[in-house]
Design a protein around this nucleic acid. Structure first.
Lengths: 252, 252
DNA sequence: TGGGTTTGTTGATCGAGATCAATCTTTTCT
DNA sequence: AGAAAAGATTGATCTCGATCAACAAACCCA
C-alpha cells in the first residue's frame, strides 16, 4: 500500500528510473523513507529557490530541466555561474553565509527537495549511493573548473565551441552523434559564457559560415565538422587564420 | 614502534595536526594504515604531477603550498582553472579521459598521495572523515562556481578585488584582519583571473591610488578600506565613478 | 658576489567584443 | 487566436584591456 504510493511519486523521476542516478541505488526501505520525507517541486522559467526555502530544504535533486546558479552584481550585471541538469544533486547545507548565488530555473524544471536527515543516513550506510553522489559532486567541481578555464582566456568563438561540446557531453542519450541540443536560451548562454547575446548570435553565424555546423532552430545544432569545432574550442588559431587571410587579400 | 614511525612522517603535516582536516579524523589504526600505503612528495615551482603518476596515485592531499590546475590552449595561452591549498584533497579517480588540466606547483608544495584503496575504506567507515572530505569537495565546487561568476562579467579591477577576498577567506589564521597574504605570483594571479600581468599591475596601483590598500611587498597587502573593496568586488559602479568625474572635469 | 634569467612595471597603440539602436522573431498569456 | 512581452538578430560605434616594447627589479645559481 505504502510502496504503491511511493511508486506513483517516484516512478517517472529520472533519479529513480535511470539506473545510474541516485535513487536507483536505494533499497526499497530507503527509497520509501526518502520519498516520504522529501518534496517535489515544479518550477518554470524565472522561478527562484528562495533562501528561506533552502534553509529547510538545502538539498535539491534535479529530475528534468535546467537550473542555474546566478550571481547578481550591484549594477544589474548578471552571470550564470553553473548549470544543473538531470541527475545533479545540489547540497547547500551550511553555506548560507557564503556569497552564494541564487538558484533560478531557466525553463520548466522538476526538482525534488531531499530530506537532509534521510540523505545523510543513506550517505552513511549505502556505499553505492555514496559513490554516485560523490562522483556527481566531483563532476560538478571539475565541470566548474573547466568552465573557469574556458571563460578566462578564450575568445568568444572558442568559448561557444567549448560550450557546444559541454552540451554534447551532458546530453542524455549521448551517442557521439552530430546532433546537439542546446538546452538554454541564447540570453542564458551568453550569461553563462560571460558574453553578450549579440556576440553569441554573431558567433553562431560565424560557425555556420565556416561550415562547422547548421542551426536549424534555436535549440538544436547539427555538427558538420566536429574536428574543426574541436580545434576551435582548443584555441587553434590556424583554423581561424583562414578568414584573416581573406581579409588581407581584400585589403591588398 | 610502528606508531612512532608514522608519527615521524605525519606529525608535522597539516592534514593531521589541524583538527579540522582529514587525517585528524582518523583512528590510530586508520592513520597507520593510510600512512603506510601513502607517499609524500615535495614539489617546487613548475613541477607537474604527470598523468602516469596520477594513474597510480589519483588522490592528492595538499599539506602546504599552492598547487594549480592549468589548462593549456593550442597556441600557448594558459589559464589557471583552480588553486588548491592546505587541506584540499583532489580526487582524480576515473577522470583521466576527460579534458582535465595539469596539476602544477606554483611554489614549494608538499603533497601526500593517498592510497585509493585505504581512502575508500575510510570513506565507507568513518563518518567524521567522510564529512570533512565531503565538505572539502563541496568547497572546491562552489569556489570554482564563484570564480566562474567572477571572471565571466566582472571588470579587471572588480576581479582583483574579488580575488583579494578569496585570499582573505582562505588564509589559515583568518582573523578578519586587514593583512592579506597573496600566496601566488602576479603572473599566476593574472592567469587565474583571465587577465594580463600588466593589467594586474595597473589594477593594484589603481587600488593603492584610491586608498583602498597598501602593497608593502609582492605577496602581502594591507587593506585600508575593506567596505570600499567589497563594493568594488560586488560591481558597484558608484565607487568607481569618482575618477571618471575627475576625468570629465579635466576635459572640460 | 655577480651575471643571467625570470618576473614585474610603465607607457603607447590597437582590436575584440561591449554597447547602443532598430528591427524581427518567438514565446507567453488572456 | 491575437496582443503583448521577451528574446534574437543585425548594423554602427566606442571602450576596456590586450598587445607590443622597453626597462626595472627580484630571484636563481654557479
Amino acid at each position: 500500500m505504502r510502496n504503491i504510493k511511493i511508486k506513483d511519486k517516484c516512478k517517472d523521476c529520472a533519479l529513480y528510473s535511470d539506473g545510474k542516478l541516485f535513487c536507483a541505488q536505494l533499497s526499497g526501505d530507503e527509497l520509501c523513507e526518502l520519498s516520504n520525507q522529501s518534496r517535489t517541486l515544479s518550477m518554470k522559467r524565472g522561478d527562484t529557490l528562495e533562501n528561506e526555502a533552502l534553509a529547510h530544504w538545502p538539498i535539491v535533486a534535479i529530475d528534468s530541466g535546467v537550473l542555474s546558479m546566478q550571481h547578481l552584481l550591484q549594477d544589474g550585471r548578471k552571470t550564470i555561474a553553473a548549470l544543473f541538469m538531470r541527475g545533479d544533486i545540489i547540497d547547500l547545507r551550511n553555506i548560507s553565509n557564503r556569497n552564494r548565488g541564487a538558484l533560478i530555473a531557466l525553463g520548466n524544471v522538476d526538482v525534488c527537495r531531499l530530506s537532509p536527515k534521510i540523505f545523510e543516513q543513506i550517505m552513511g550506510h549505502n556505499p553505492d549511493a555514496q559513490k554516485v553522489i560523490w562522483e556527481n559532486l566531483r563532476d560538478q567541481a571539475f565541470r566548474a573548473m573547466d568552465h573557469s578555464g574556458d571563460i578566462a582566456k578564450k575568445q568568444a568563438l572558442e568559448k561557444l565551441a567549448s560550450f557546444i561540446f559541454e552540451c554534447r557531453n551532458r546530453q542524455v542519450g549521448f551517442t557521439d552523434g552530430d546532433l546537439v541540443k542546446i538546452p538554454v536560451r541564447r540570453i542564458d548562454l551568453a550569461e553563462y559564457l560571460g558574453m553578450q547575446p549579440e556576440t553569441v548570435s554573431r558567433c553562431f553565424k560565424d560557425l555556420e559560415k565556416r561550415g562547422v555546423l547548421e542551426a536549424p532552430s534555436l535549440n538544436a545544432l547539427k555538427l558538420l565538422n566536429v574536428p574543426m569545432l574541436r580545434r576551435i574550442a582548443n584555441g587553434d588559431k590556424d583554423v581561424l587564420a583562414n578568414e584573416s587571410r581573406i581579409r588581407v587579400l581584400k585589403i591588398a
